[in-house]
Computed example of a mutant assay.
Amino acid sequence: MQFTVGFKSDGKLGHVLIDGDDALVAALKLKAKCPAATIMYVRPRNRRGDNRHPPLPALSPN
């Protein structure tokens, strides 16, 4: 299952798509990749919304 994780890092907001068994695993994967990031939200992937606002590929841990 894919989750969208919203975060704040260096005063900028962003979101990435992360594969995970549940929301907690997805959030921890982002924290492992970017320890300074503040997790703002985790939600199941929404194909329509995520296609309109694509995630940042540079921070994607996949």
Rank of each mutant, 00 (worst) to 15 (best):
A27S: 10
A36F: 05
R48Q: 12
D21C: 09
D22N: 15
K33S: 05
F3N: 12
A23V: 04
R48H: 09
V25K: 15
R43F: 00
A36N: 13
A26S: 09
G20F: 02
F3T: 05
F3Q: 12
D22A: 01
D19G: 05
H53W: 08
D22F: 03
P54D: 12
V16Y: 02
D10Q: 15
L28F: 00
H15K: 15
G6A: 10
L17M: 09
S9L: 15
G20C: 07
A26G: 08
L56H: 10
F3G: 04
V16H: 06
K12S: 09
R43E: 08
F3W: 15
P54V: 11
R47V: 02
L30E: 11
R43H: 02
K12D: 09
A26P: 04
D10G: 10
D21T: 14
A37V: 07
G11P: 05
T4N: 05
K33H: 08
G14S: 15
K8N: 14
P55I: 00
Y41G: 01
A27E: 01
R48S: 11
S9D: 13
A36C: 05
V42A: 01
P44K: 06
L30S: 07
V16N: 07
S60A: 09
L56K: 11
L59M: 10
T4P: 00
D19F: 02
L13E: 04
G6W: 12
D50K: 10
P55H: 09
D50W: 05
K31L: 10
R47N: 07
L17H: 13
D19N: 11
T38D: 04
K8S: 15
A58Y: 10
G11C: 08
L24F: 04
F3H: 07
L24H: 04
A27H: 01
V16F: 03
G20D: 03
D21A: 15
H15L: 09
G6I: 03
I39Y: 04
L30M: 14
S9Y: 14
V42I: 02
R45Q: 11
R48L: 12
H53L: 10
M1I: 10
P61K: 07
C34L: 12
C34V: 13
S9E: 12
C34K: 11
A58L: 09
L30N: 09
K33Q: 06
A23D: 11
C34N: 11
V42L: 03
P35E: 01
L13I: 11
V42W: 00
G14W: 12
P55D: 06
F7W: 14
R52M: 08
G14Y: 13
N46Q: 10
Q2K: 15
